[in-house]
Design a protein around this nucleic acid. Sequence first.
DNA 1: AACTCGGGGCA
DNA 2: TGCCCAGAGTT
Length: 211
Amino acid sequence: MSPINITRLYQKLAKNLPEAKSELAFKNHFELLIAVILSTQSTDKTVNKVTPTLFASCPTPVAMLAMGQSRLATIIKPIGLAPAKSKNIINTCKIILEKHAGKIPGTREELEQLPGVGRKTANVVLNEGFDKPTIAVDTHVFRVSNRTGLAPGKTVLTTELKLLEVTPEKWLKNAHHYLILHGRYTCKAKNFDCQYCVIKKECGFTEKTNN
DNA sequence: AACTCGGGGCA
DNA sequence: TGCCCAGAGTT
């Protein structure tokens, strides 16, 4: 078995996806954290529809608490899962004020204590807000990593650790964006067509059982 | 491990 | 119009 050329794989994805970067609009750690929590089961573009309005009236945790859960839910309704997300955001703001002096913590352990923040969300915040070498693994990244053989793993966590291990430092910052876009538009869960894939030579997926 | 939340995106 | 999620929390 010949190991896949990982550097070449990233080079080709980068060349094919020059726009592969975060589209979330945020000005500081607080806005980043809230925007990423809102991104759960949604998209950056959808989140950007409500965050300008939201952050204009709620630029801080204190302002968010003053706004209140029900009014927050009304503002973020277009994103989906509004009841759960608004509740989590309010409780997260309380913890940030009570335990972190109003500042967003920069460690995985502290971030994952916040309601609405799981492994994936924490990784995005650490990567984009604190320049930590993390790769956020969602269903797309998980599928692409396994199907191509880039970072096979039985669970999302094992795939994430494998990705960190095999990904050259140069590609660490944007690996998530390359893999997620590749998964969304080319290496789709169903009805994918390897004929149009730019990394088919680097890919270990041999059973071309399309459609 | 399975279920739920929910509007968006897309065929 | 129906299907599938750019997940996390609960049971």
